[in-house]
Amino acid sequence: MRIILVLIIISLLLAIGFLTAFFWAVNDGQYDDDFTPSIRILFDDEKHPQNKL
């Protein structure tokens, strides 16, 4: 039954991985603006986007 201890440690490591991902997301600025992205996602991609000049 000691295997449970190993499983617990693995699960914790996994969870810490997600926590790190969360830290990265916050530091990347993803939580700075929680309103604009909700609008940005509604824009359609244009069919023939103009090439950059």
């Binding site: 700075d32 603006d33 309103f35 604009t36 609008i39 940005r40 509604l42 824009f43 103009q50 950059k52 000049l53």
Partner: peptide, 27 residues
């Protein structure tokens, strides 16, 4: 409005010197 957001984030199309624009509507 959302049009403002769209236009400003597409500024690179108006001038090639502009590389990237990111708008925060509330602020």
């Amino acid at each position: 409005c959302s049009s403002c957001l769209w236009l400003l984030e597409n500024l690179p199309r108006l001038h090639s010197g502009i590389r990237h624009c990111k708008v925060n509507i509330l602020s």
